[in-house]
């Protein structure tokens, strides 16, 4: 129940931010629209894998996820800039990263988080096979790339999208 209320509040906030308005009418319309969206999504949702998870624990991991992603973004930006201003991507290549068994949406969140950083491009994401195909700037040591990705998932994402 708390999760549903939180979703309604977040959606209403986004709606009001987009309107940049706090008029009672706009707040009411935002609440109604958000409630309809959240209720519809709750009916469509079939998986129950996330039910048992602690919402508070997941929310506590959000700052780490955002902060860690920003650190990855800064590192990736630097690495990509060096490559582009240097000799290009002589060692660029594809690396297949195994995805550990995870809950609903975890693979998608992983793909967005990794794809947001300019030094990695998500080519394929196969939840059934449990693999993610990445194009990286330096694919000479694929084991190191895989270890980096798994480590990044464990430290940054696992608490929020287990």
């Amino acid at each position: 129940m708390l999760a549903q209320v939180l979703r309604v509040v977040v959606l209403t906030t986004i709606y009001l931010l987009a309107l940049t308005s706090l008029r009672p009418g706009d707040v009411l319309v935002g609440l109604v629209l958000s409630t309809v969206v959240v209720a519809t999504a709750a009916r469509i949702r079939t998986s129950t894998s996330d039910r048992g998870r602690s919402l508070r624990r997941r929310l506590a991991g959000v700052p780490g996820l955002i902060g860690g992603t920003l650190v990855d973004l800064a590192k990736g930006t630097w690495a990509t800039t060096r490559c582009l201003m240097g000799g290009g991507l002589p060692h660029g290549g594809l690396v297949e990263v195994p995805i550990p068994p995870s809950g609903q949406g975890a693979a998608a969140a992983w793909g967005i988080r990794v794809g947001f950083v300019p030094d990695t491009v998500v080519v394929e994401l196969d939840e059934r096979k449990g693999t993610m195909l990445l194009h990286v700037l330096d694919a000479r040591d694929p084991d190191a790339v895989i270890a980096d990705q798994i480590d990044s998932y464990e430290r940054r994402q696992r608490r929020v999208f287990p």
Binding site: L73, T77, T80, C83, L89, V117, P118, V121
Partner: peptide, 19 residues
């Protein structure tokens, strides 16, 4: 403009569309 391949160009455009 400089990268010859699609993936190289995607890394380059990632700089623009992200940071």
């Amino acid at each position: 403009l400089r990268q010859p391949g699609t993936f190289g160009q995607l890394h380059a455009q990632g700089l623009a569309t992200g940071p």
